[in-house]
């Protein structure tokens, strides 16, 4: 492990300059970043901590919804009373992340910006994402890799929170040296075909400072389901967050988002279309399950994920019905 300088700027402006001029790496909870450094995947000479910057650790509810500072921990989200009452989908997803120890340290911003768990990326393989020439998963051990949106790199996005937040219609506030922008969370993530070396739109120097979650409509219902191999400290094989607004049992609006299936949290637009204007009957749920995986392209060892995704969407809808 290489040594590094650790700096704690007090303002965003100072942070920008450290990030752009000195090529520092941003660190929040550090649960992912330190692992990357220890495993020799990255060797930043400078770590820029967000710890001392005002306002990033607060969470407050306003008329339109919830504003979550990027440094709010997952443990706080999991146990917050307002979140539990009005945004339980977020609390449910937060409670499924890693372990209690990690949740106490990991932040929501870090969770959205975490790097993939692909074992080629994490291991001693000079893969596409690390500047190499090949994606080893293409012909290798790809049982945990993407069935949707893959290519040329086939990672799956590891975040549980992204899946839940996307279903809630959240957006991300990004601040950079040249100003700030608020983007819908679905536009925050980028596919490898756009840029294989990163998973988000963040340019060097830009910082994710806040997540905004619109207040759910009173008639909205939601459910989160994470399927993994072991009961804790495991990333999703497939996760599903569903959000639906119904009127007289007819679905007005539905958002179905999947984790563990694609290089980004994957919005199942076809499934959403299949649900709109329908009541949740058996055939409709089956159809939505099928629609989720219509575009799926499995690799040599992950075809089972198609069945998993289809069945999980159907199961999740059944609990909504």
């Amino acid at each position: 492990m290489e040594g590094f300088v650790y700096s704690q700027p007090g303002t965003l402006r100072e942070a920008f300059s450290l990030l752009t001029n000195k090529k520092g790496k941003l660190v929040a909870g550090g649960t992912d970043l330190l692992g990357e450094i220890q495993d020799g995947i990255i060797a930043p000479g400078l770590l820029v901590s967000l710890e001392r910057i005002q306002g990033l650790k607060t969470m407050r509810e306003e008329k339109n919804g919830l504003r979550i500072g990027a440094l709010v921990t997952l443990a706080e989200l999991e146990s917050d009373k307002i979140v539990a009452e009005h945004y339980p989908l977020l609390a449910a997803a937060a409670g499924e992340v890693a372990t209690p120890q990690l949740r106490a340290q990991a932040t929501i911003g870090g969770n959205l910006c975490q790097r993939p768990r692909c074992w080629y990326y994490r291991g001693d393989f000079n893969c596409l994402k690390k500047g190499g020439a090949v994606c080893y998963a293409e012909d290798g051990e790809n049982q945990y890799h993407a069935i949707l949106g893959g290519g040329p790199c086939h990672i799956v996005h590891p975040s549980d929170m992204a899946v839940a937040l996307l279903a809630m219609g959240a957006s991300a506030r990004v601040v950079g040296p040249r100003g700030e922008k608020t983007v819908p969370l679905e536009k925050f993530f980028v596919l490898p075909q756009v840029d294989v070396k990163r998973e988000t739109i963040l340019a060097p120097g830009e910082i994710l400072v806040e997540i905004r979650v619109p207040k759910p409509l009173p008639e909205a219902r939601w459910v989160f389901r994470k399927m993994r191999e072991r009961g804790a400290w495991d990333f999703a094989l497939v996760s599903v967050a569903a959000y639906a607004v119904t009127k007289d049992k007819v679905i007005q609006e539905a958002r179905i988002v999947l984790g563990g299936v694609a290089p980004i949290p994957w919005r199942a637009v076809r499934a959403e279309q299949a649900l709109k204007g329908k009541t949740l009957t058996g055939p409709v749920m089956r159809l939505a399950g099928e629609a989720t995986v219509t575009d799926a392209r499995p690799l040599s060892q992950n075809e089972y994920k198609i069945r998993l995704a289809r069945n999980l969407v159907r199961q999740v809808l059944a609990t909504l019905a």
């Binding site: 692992g35 372990t99 768990r117 074992w119 291991g123 393989f125 072991r230 009961g231 804790a232 495991d234």
Partner: peptide, 12 residues
Amino acid sequence: VNASFSAYKIPS
């Protein structure tokens, strides 16, 4: 390829 406790899964 799974030479770590996060990728090699022992029961929790």
